[in-house]
Amino acid sequence: MKRRPGKRDLLLIIGLLLVCAVSAAAVYFLQSKNGAYAVVTVDGSEYGRYDLSKEQTIAIRKDGIVTNTLQIIDGHADMTDANCPDKLCVHQKAISKSAESIICLPNKVVVTIEGGVEGNFDSMAR
């Protein structure tokens, strides 16, 4: 077994850091626009699309049971409640930029911010 990290290890780590930086930059650019809608999908199909400029609370139901509660305030969408035990989606920050998302894995609920038609074309052209 090798006792100390060598040159190859250093190169590998630098390479991986570069990959991190490039992917972080790509995501940053894609998410830099303010979005217009919060699109909710449940089980991969669209559940509803909500205007971010209107303050509202949305109860997301699945088989008649409220699984998640989404709140829209100040152009930000925030998951305020969920019926799963870990509540990771509730802990996530409110989202407002296009392509940002909150994902609830156990309930398969995804909230994604989308811009208008224009916003979508912009992000595709980049």
Binding site: G44, L105, V110
Partner: peptide, 10 residues
């Protein structure tokens, strides 16, 4: 695959 979304790749 489970959630059927690509936004997770962000």
């Amino acid at each position: 695959v489970i959630v059927e979304t690509y936004s997770i790749f962000y």
